[in-house]
């Protein structure tokens, strides 16, 4: 049950088109189901193997959850509205945050370079706030979510073209507390 859930999560993360610009390596594929083909091992070894596998799966699931939590989202030009493709990414964060009550997030709003420097500080804040409000509406306690705007001052891609601007209009997610308490979504 848990296993299929993880595959789903892995699929979701891997299928998001923006995965390419994440710094994290894509999660490794799920392990092949060896048990059915391998020779029956002595009982003790089997227990050890299962414990080890369970620990590995757990570590992998936590890493995936962290990746999903930190997955950035993007915005349209001069807009702070949540796009449909962003909703799916945010809903995943809601599940992880619900399963990880000690985790706190800082939501950073960013803009492309085309607006005014000071006005973009406000626009970046509005983007971060839109994301925060979305998470709060899904039941995440607002005290766990902090926002900050960097305006156009921290571009992801230091170029002046449509592709760079699209990547730079974004919200980033920084785990500020409970980083060792991240749990995958519960059943």
């Amino acid at each position: 049950m848990m296993h299929s859930r993880l595959i789903l999560v892995a699929f979701l993360v891997a299928s998001v088109p923006l995965t390419a610009c994440r710094r994290e390596q894509p999660p490794p594929p799920p392990p092949p189901a060896e048990e059915t083909t391998s020779e029956p091992a002595p009982q003790e070894d089997r227990d050890d193997d299962e414990a080890r596998r369970a620990a590995e799966e757990r570590a992998r699931a936590v890493a995936e959850a962290r990746g999903a939590l930190e997955q950035r989202v993007h915005f349209d030009y001069d807009e702070s509205t949540i796009r449909p493709d962003t909703e799916r990414i945010l809903l995943e964060k809601v599940e992880i945050l619900q399963a990880s009550p000690d985790v706190r997030l800082r939501i950073e709003g960013h803009c492309d370079e085309r607006g005014s420097v000071e006005y973009n500080l406000a626009l970046g804040n509005r983007r971060a706030e839109a994301v925060r409000q979305f998470l709060v509406n899904y039941g995440i306690d607002e005290s766990r979510l902090e926002t900050v705007s960097y305006g156009q001052e921290r571009p992801l891609v230091a170029e002046s073209n449509e592709s760079a601007w699209a990547q730079n209009r974004r919200a980033e997610f920084i785990v500020t507390a409970g980083g060792d308490q991240i749990n995958p979504p519960s059943e």
Binding site: L121, E129, V148
Partner: peptide
């Protein structure tokens, strides 16, 4: 976010913006 400060002509006070929380 505490941003965009500027001085009152009296030199003692400033005006600035707090942006956040809607």
């Amino acid at each position: 976010d505490y941003i965009t400060p500027s001085y009152h002509p009296d030199g003692d006070r400033i005006a600035f913006s707090i942006v956040g929380g809607g």
